[in-house]
């Protein structure tokens, strides 16, 4: 489904990604973990070219783009096959929850308004916001805003949804509702790549975890195995520092 090969990225002289290979299969949920500054978010953003890699190739299904010299069309293809949920929600502030979800369907996918509306309402109900479809982002709590963000991604029916630390900006008591929604859509078999700090969530929901440090993949594999007995020293240290959240479900 997703194939990243030899992705590199430098900001000036600073090398953030040092040639990363990553394959994600259809329906797989991959969690990317690692200390801050390890390049996880940059890697995720390279998948839909919000960040342009300095080298390597990105492919989602049929769509493929050269990291360094992508054509506009290639980038567009990748973005049509993916959707992203942001750390700071990044909702369109001048649009209601419903309009936020409809925007991509109507403007990009050219779906007729009525159909797009029905679809959007359905997805918003799915994330538990059926009663809030006419609310503007400023009238919603962080957790609700993030659920709109998830609905916006979900409505596009992308081949993969990219989550960029979806709960990092939330107040602790709001984390649960968002994780619960993500967990539910994970069960539906949607391919997901999740950058997260929620270890418990990664352990329970992900099929595979990828540990990154200093721009490289240190270790990857089945979450239960890796959390129980990590092979690499750096992974051990990282896991020791982070005490797992005991309970996040609502």
């Amino acid at each position: 489904m997703i194939q990243l090969s030899r992705i590199t990225k430098s900001f000036g002289r600073h090398e953030v990604l040092k040639g990363i290979d990553l394959n994600v299969g259809k329906g797989e949920v991959v969690a990317i973990l690692g200390p801050s500054g390890s390049g996880k978010t940059t890697l995720l953003r390279c998948i839909n070219f919000l960040e342009r890699p300095s080298g390597g190739t990105v492919a989602i299904g049929e769509a493929k783009a050269d990291g360094k010299h992508p054509s506009k069309k290639d980038i567009r293809e990748l973005r049509l096959k993916s959707a992203m949920v942001f750390q700071h929600y990044n909702l369109f502030r001048h649009k209601t929850a419903l309009e936020n979800v409809m925007e991509g369907l109507v403007i990009v996918r050219k779906i007729p308004k009525e159909k797009a509306r029905a679809k959007s309402v359905e997805v918003l109900e799915k994330v538990g916001l059926g009663a809030k479809i006419d609310a503007y982002p400023s009238q919603l709590s962080g957790g609700q805003q993030q659920r709109v963000g998830i609905a916006r991604a979900l409505a596009l029916e992308p081949e993969v949804i990219l989550f960029d630390e979806p709960t990092s900006a939330l107040d602790p008591e709001l984390v649960g509702e968002v994780l619960e929604v993500i967990r539910r859509i994970a069960k539906e078999g949607i391919t997901m790549v999740v950058v997260t700090h929620e270890m418990g969530f990664a352990r329970d929901v992900a099929n595979r975890v990828v540990f990154m440090d200093e721009g490289a993949v240190i270790e990857e594999g089945d979450p239960r195995e890796i959390f129980a007995k990590p092979k690499q020293e750096r992974t051990k240290q990282f896991l020791k520092r982070i005490t797992p959240e005991p309970n996040y479900s609502i």
Partner: peptide
């Protein structure tokens, strides 16, 4: 961030 969100749903720079 909103511009990035617009890109992520597939909009062009102009859109």
């Amino acid at each position: 961030g909103q511009v990035e969100a617009a890109y992520s749903v597939g909009m062009s720079g102009f859109q």
